[in-house]
Design a protein around this nucleic acid. Sequence first.
RNA 1: GUCCCGUUCGUCUAGUCAGGUCAGGACACCGGGUUUUCAUCCCGGCAACAGGGGUUCGAAUCCCCUACGGGACGCCA
Length: 503
Amino acid sequence: MTPTVRTRIAPSPTGAPHVGTAYMALFNLAFARKHGGQMVLRIEDTDRQRSSPQSEQAILDALQWLGIEWDEGPDCGGNHGPYRQSERLEFHQAEVNRLVNQGDAYLCFCTTERLEQVRKEQMANKETPRYDGHCLNLSTEEIEKKKEQGDPYVVRMKVPTEGECVFTDELRGEVRIDWKQIDHQVIQKSDGYPTYHLANVVDDHRMEISHVIRGEEWISSTPKHVLLYQQLGWDAPSFAHLPLLRNPDKSKLSKRKNPTGIFYYRDAGFLPEAMLNYLGMMGYTLPDQREIFSLDELSESFEIKRMSLGGPIFDLAKLKWLNGRYLREKLDSDEVVNRLVDWKANKEKFAQVLELALPRLETFSDFFPLAHHMFEECPIYSTEDLIGKQEAQFVTRLLKIAEWELEKIKDWKRDALAELFQHMAKVEEMKLKDLLRPFFFAISGSAVSLPLFDSVALLGPDLSRVRLRNALHKLSETGASLSKKGLKSLEKEYRSAYGNRID
RNA sequence: GUCCCGUUCGUCUAGUCAGGUCAGGACACCGGGUUUUCAUCCCGGCAACAGGGGUUCGAAUCCCCUACGGGACGCCA
């Protein structure tokens, strides 16, 4: 009798739900289903600064939209809860204490400033930046004294000084990494929350996860996890590291270069099953090479060894082709109508848009021409219109700044957007009207249009971002793009006028 | 910089584990056909084993080196 297969997907609720999360979830699910096991959804919200309940809800909604189902999770419970790491602190802290008592971990009182300094020096000497062991041998008295003084501290894991860590990756075979490469990783932060590495190991163990299927980005830190399992006296699960989805330039898929938000695809009018199918063919082919398959079909025949290891480039063109086939071959016309209505051709959506359009209507015929940009992926307009009477370079600058400023918006609402553009007009010493002109084209494709802030608010961050990027792309074709140098100086200028960028 | 992972048409990939068919399919692109237009659909075309060395009668496949790409090196995950 083989032990139950249990996989997990462990997203961090920071920002918009990412297609990478769905990608990993898909294969975790397929693997669990294939082996008659379960998949757990665990929310990794140990970063108190960046985690938010809204983001958590968005992740659940996004995965559900795609048709990804989990057997245990924060919404549906299960026998291994709670499923939010922030609610499992006692488990984490107990193990941290155990490690400290065992001598496998130690308290570190170094300040962020000191650590930065050390790191800087090491970089300058072309060494691998690592903790220098400053607090490794503090005496019990020193520790007690510092604690009494209320000095903040973290807990670090002790790592062997020689030898190498050998572990098996189910897809790549044996991986060997020198312990010398591994830093004395912080496992508990000064706020008492565990870091990923600790929480991950403790929770995977307690949740009886048998197979850790995750992104390739984790290979280099797997030794830390292997070591923690050893020190805690637990059997490690199997590891399989999947390739990372890539941008067309082969870098790790990022929202700067691609729509990475799951909701983008929903809002742009893709079918969830086509999306899931497409993700399934990234790095994987069914044994019979079928290109159109459902989640069930994938799960039935899934063999993780068939994963290819080169990072696949996310290709919108092929996704669109696939979506078209679903529309024509997988759904009957009645279903297509229903889906279209559910998408945006419904009363709620029309009501939202009509509120903006009504003052501008004489007849119903005016509605759709005025509101087309609310129902398309990206409007069409000429680059001349976009530039208008301004300098192309200057328009590029405005769009770029707006792109950065938009990243700072937490609550994507009309008022926040209005404030943003008003602030921008002030800083740029422009009339709001002049500032907004290119944005009207970028967002709605026309200067005769619905109110901009409301349109952007309704479109949401994903669709809006792509439209700005599309405008920038059009400008770059006129030669008005920023050189690397120009971009750098703009960034500098931006930082002094608007504050730091957020990614 | 150090370490790790990877590399078949522009893109997704089959073939690699058990060496032996013109390296197969799909997207994109190009051409042709059907269609009052367009799209769909059908037919055809273009196009790849990163490079070098080995092992072998024979290498995309096994081994080594190089190159290139990616990732990691946070009190983020």
